[in-house]
Amino acid sequence: MHDPSSRGRSHARSAPWPALSTALLALILALAWSHQALAHAVTAGDQGYIQEISGVNLIPFVYLGAKHMVTGYDHILFLLGVIFFFYQMKHIGIYVTLFAIGHSTTMLLGVYFNVGINSYIIDAIIGLSVVYKALDNLGAYQRWFGFQPNTKAATLIFGFFHGFGLSTKILEYNIAPDGLVPNLLAFNVGVEIGQLLALSAILIVMGFWRRSPSFVRHAYTANVAMMCAGFVLIGYQLTGLAVSS
């Protein structure tokens, strides 16, 4: 099937770097540099709550899952990249579902089977997912290597890594085994609710933006900004890994 994400790339490549796009770049980089954007961080209050409670607590874990997704700028940046050039809801639904399947699978299995990955490494890979998708939107792989990677497979695979990022963080907080499975399922439901909320906001903004002439002019710059944010995430995590070693 023809990849809808290729639509509009040839026009976007020649876009200028106007002041508005520079401001967009600064905003995305600021988000990437904030504490919550740099990892799958859980606030101190939430961390203490997770460590102290036991038994089945469905509503609190739904809330925590939704809060994590809505404030997880690495997730949001990747989702933005995935749907950037999609205009039809069926295409958006397919890719968002693949991402949800990926991160839900590894989050649940990672915590249940106690499979942890170094948080700096997994978060650097998540930053790489943002860079990958921005380069894909810019048509870089076709120009550099003469082929288009399978976008569905890439979305699913990077979804796995996003899920491992979350499971690794949950494991660090020693969630109680009592009520583990129901609480994890509730947390995952919250993550999906948060994802739908974030996606809805993205689609509303993108819908208005696409109706204006500035979309074609600034699409290139927006993806460059996303790529830079991804590199910031990677650099921060690799620096943290080196310092902690």
Rank of each mutant, 00 (worst) to 15 (best):
H2N: 11
P4N: 04
P4G: 06
A12I: 13
R13L: 15
R13M: 12
A15E: 01
S21E: 07
L29Y: 02
S34N: 05
A37V: 09
L38S: 02
A39P: 03
A41C: 01
Y49L: 15
L58F: 03
L58G: 06
M69H: 09
M69N: 04
G72E: 03
I76Q: 01
I76E: 02
I83L: 06
F84A: 14
F85A: 12
Y87T: 15
Q88V: 14
M89L: 02
M89C: 00
K90A: 08
V96H: 05
V96K: 14
T97Q: 08
T97Y: 05
L98C: 10
G102D: 11
L108F: 14
L108D: 08
V111S: 00
F113D: 08
I122A: 04
A124L: 11
V130Y: 12
Y132V: 08
Y132F: 14
K133H: 04
L135P: 07
Y141P: 00
F145H: 11
F147H: 04
P149A: 12
T151N: 13
T151C: 00
A154Y: 12
A154S: 09
F160W: 11
H162C: 06
Y173M: 14
N183G: 10
N183I: 12
L184N: 07
L185W: 04
V189W: 08
V189R: 09
V191F: 13
V191Q: 02
L203I: 04
I204Y: 11
R210S: 12
S212F: 14
R217E: 14
N223W: 05
A225L: 13
M226F: 15
A229N: 08
F231N: 09
V232H: 12
G235V: 09
Y236C: 14
Y236K: 06
L238E: 03
L238P: 00
S244G: 06
